[in-house]
């Protein structure tokens, strides 16, 4: 029989998991780009990869302390944003999308190549960088929490840090978007020539937005690797598309949308794939001849379909104001 309680418990884990927090933060960065400024960034995976490798390489190769590694990652992502932005932010929106998706792939290929294996670990990636972060943990060893949220001191520490960062980022974004700065970037989303005619340096604001959302993505990339290892295959274009799904689920031009979108995405994904896997094992899908491997693949098919349906039928997301649609033009 299908153990529904177990499925619910597993889904519950995702509610506060650091992965959910990382995706929420990356989606918030994308909300700043896409939802508020109208920048079609398809390279958020690249920003996350920079966070992951920036942190990992500074720690493993250069033995930087945690704060140093974090700064290296953020610095690298600012440079990356500048490289992306300088040639494209003056051009039509499609160009940014193509250049960002290409740049993210370039990064992934560079991190994957055998040539740089000594530093990047090639296709195997990196691990063993978590010591510094674990050493900062003030929580004594032991078991904490209850039910599906039972965890050790490291996991608790990681969740506290991850979600604190998400909350701070939300507050920052919220304050920015209700300020005159936010008014300018939202104006740029609507019509950048009009904003230019009002004496605003549009290029400069777009660059600021690209950097800010990119830094959010980079920090998300660091949170993402703390419960796992760095594997270059994780930073493929699909990651960016998942973040778009999350963003559109919650609402592109909202602050809380990305967070709630990420929670719903991961809880649902876990529940659905848990259900399909267990139902398959229980023989529910024997009629259509589904194997266990196929059961694992259904979730990706579902994500694709959900993304399409969202854009077509509820483009403003769950939290979005029907009227304030970032992309309905």
């Amino acid at each position: 029989m299908v153990d529904f309680w177990q499925i619910i418990q597993n889904a519950g884990v995702e509610l506060i998991s650091p992965t959910t927090a990382a995706y929420a933060l990356a989606a918030l960065g994308l909300a700043i780009h896409f939802g508020f400024t109208g920048l079609v960034n398809f390279g958020q995976a690249g920003f996350m990869a920079i966070g992951a490798y920036g942190y990992g390489i500074s720690t493993l190769t250069f033995h930087f302390p945690v704060w140093g590694a974090v700064l290296v990652g953020i610095g690298a992502s600012i440079v990356f944003a500048l490289i992306l932005g300088v040639p494209t932010l003056r051009l039509r929106a499609d160009y940014l999308s193509i250049v960002t998706i290409a740049a993210a792939e370039i990064l992934r290929l560079i991190f994957t190549t055998n040539t740089l294996e000594a530093v990047t670990g090639s296709a195997d990636g990196l691990s063993g960088y978590k010591g510094g972060f674990a050493d900062l943990n003030p929580i004594p060893d032991g078991t904490y929490g209850f039910g599906p949220w039972t965890m050790n001191a490291y996991d608790l520490w990681l969740r506290i840090v991850a979600w604190t960062i998400v909350i701070i980022a939300c507050l920052l974004a919220w304050q920015l978007m209700r300020s005159p700065w936010g008014r300018v970037v939202k104006g740029i989303r609507e019509d950048e020539d009009a904003v230019r005619a009002l004496g605003k340096n549009v290029y400069f604001y777009k660059m600021q937005s690209l950097i800010l959302g990119g830094v959010f993505g980079t920090i998300a990339g660091m949170i993402f690797i703390l419960p796992r290892a760095i594997v270059p295959a994780n930073y493929a274009t699909t990651l960016t598309f998942f973040i778009y799904t999350i963003l559109l689920l919650g609402g592109a031009a909202t602050i809380l949308g990305p967070v709630v979108g990420s929670i719903i995405f991961w809880v649902l994904l876990s529940a659905v794939s848990g259900f399909v896997a267990r139902a398959q094992a229980a023989g529910w899908f024997d009629l259509i001849g589904m194997s266990s491997v196929q059961a694992g693949q259904t979730r990706f098919i579902l994500v694709g379909i959900v993304l399409m349906l969202l854009v077509i039928f509820r483009p403003q997301g769950i939290f979005g104001n029907k009227k304030e649609l970032a992309f309905v033009k």
Partner: peptide
């Protein structure tokens, strides 16, 4: 939408 379609078809 085409991205969603791409994901769904690919998998």
């Amino acid at each position: 939408v085409s991205i969603g379609l791409s994901l769904a078809l690919r998998y």
